[in-house]
Amino acid sequence: MFVDYYPGATIIHRLDVRAKLVAFTALMVLLFFFTNPLYNLLLAVFSTFLLFYLGLPIRKISAILRPVAPILLFIMLITAFTYPAENFVIPAAKVVFYKKGWFEISSGGVLYGATLVLRIFNMVILSSILTCSTPLDHFLQVMKMSRLPSNVSFLIITGIRFVPTMQKKVEMVFNAQKVRGANFDEKGLFSRVKAYIPIMVPLLVQSLYMSDRLAVAMLNRGYGAAARQTSLEEISMNGLDYIFIMLFMAVTVVGIYLRVQGIGRL
């Protein structure tokens, strides 16, 4: 779900991270306003369009969706079989296709299943759009600008900064064991988990060792010298960002209005 930054020059790329976050939040809220799959389908079309607009290669998109596909199918089936018709309000949802004892397949169940599936689909796609159009750095800057204590945001930022380093270390330990004949290809969950345990130990030791060195390096760069650190953030909002924010706020208001009117229910 968390996709690497994919460089580009589209409007979405150029928008300020804050504008994107507002839009993202608005869309996420809208997803949960309506149970009628029609509305979520509309959103799905919109988000899929955006995804293509970003110019992401198809391979990447399918890599995002493939792992969630079985879950989607599973949810669809479960909801279709477990939501009886009396849970629904509108006539179209009250059609019963099959009924035996407590077991009932209704049109409402199928539709509600579709809504859930589309919700998850939208969440995956929208968060992918957000992360692949925004460099990590921008998120970090937002974090710095928020009222978080500087120590906390430094902690998070440094943590993220060292993810790739740790990944490299995992790979190296993994390789070191492979060349000494460790068997990672073995069948069976238990033996596989067992084979991975020796990787965790050196990694833990290494990270403790690294954190010690980092502490020294931080002091060495004067960490904690002044009460207030200078911040260099450069993200800035322009007209387009404000328009974008207004637009999505308006959409949200419309969404709320429709919801209150009882539209989009099943």
């Binding site: 904690g224 002044a226 009460a227 200078t230 260099l232």
Partner: peptide, 12 residues
């Protein structure tokens, strides 16, 4: 590079 100077709170 900015990490050090920022820790000292120097002007941007």
């Amino acid at each position: 590079v900015a990490f050090g100077p920022c820790n000292f709170g120097l002007p941007k």
